[in-house]
Design a protein around this nucleic acid. Structure first.
Lengths: 138, 138
DNA sequence: ATATTTGCTTTCGAAATGAAAGTAAAGTTA
DNA sequence: TAACTTTACTTTCATTTCGAAAGCAAATAT
């Protein structure tokens, strides 16, 4: 059976393991990333990301993230076959987590990382508060 | 074949996906957590954590984290059958990532989380810099 | 009216995982 | 010193998760 809202089986009462129980897979934070960066995405948009998630995986991750209230699915204003996915505040609050991954990778995987991300990492180092707020507040 | 040092197959040049490619599983950050918190651990110590990792999984995670230079394995000073695992600076730099998970979980999974962790989260909210440094500098 | 697009679902072989049992070397105990 | 226990794994195996590919229905574009 599927786990319904709130019926997660947490491994422990540790905040870290619990967060990982919810979205500690290789795709969830990338969906969050796209939503933070673009603000609004369609199924096709997510599919177009460089990491090439399979549609089966994308579908179940979107479903799970929605059930966790990290994102919301809504209708496109004019096109009935397109749905729009948006972050909730709860999902947006994962952005600081994402930002720390960016900082770490910029420091230790620097020569492998795309240029725009490096710049973002540098901004985070210079003025974390402000850089985060630029995204969180829109 | 196993992936040797530096031969990771990254999904993209994104810093987030790349970090997840390296240690985006359900166990790696928990090992880091224990090392940050306790400073030094044995195989048995890790096995004793509340999340109950299987020995097979613990063995291959320790091996991978070592190959990534996130931790170091060394001999126990007096007992030849025990090994000591310690964080490298590279591994220690994952602590801010871990800290953000703690903050998020404290905000959204609060009633499920253990008391000591809540206090740590509160300290992070009050004075992030200082709280992080208390751990990182020892 | 037909073709195409979108957002999925289904299928299936491969890879990763957890649980349990096994092992060898070192250390402890009688 | 012989037997027992502990530590750090390794092995086995059934289950779960995953990625790749194909399929599908409804909506839209041509």
């Amino acid at each position: 059976m599927k786990a319904k809202k709130g019926e997660e089986n947490f491994r422990s009462d540790c905040p870290i393991s619990s967060a990982l129980d919810l979205f500690g897979d290789k795709w969830s934070l990338l969906i969050i990333r796209d939503l933070v960066y673009f603000g609004e995405r369609t199924f096709k948009d997510f599919s177009g990301a460089a990491e090439k998630i399979s549609s089966a995986r994308l579908a179940d991750r979107l479903c799970k993230l929605e059930s966790l209230d990290l994102l919301i699915k809504s209708n496109h204003p004019t096109n009935k076959k397109v749905y729009l996915y948006t972050l909730t505040p709860k999902g947006m609050d994962l952005f600081p987590v994402v930002a720390e991954y960016v900082k770490w990778s910029n420091k230790y995987l620097n020569d492998h990382i795309a240029e725009p991300a490096k710049e973002f990492a540098q901004n985070l180092e210079k003025d974390r508060e402000n850089t985060l707020n630029q995204f969180m507040k829109r």
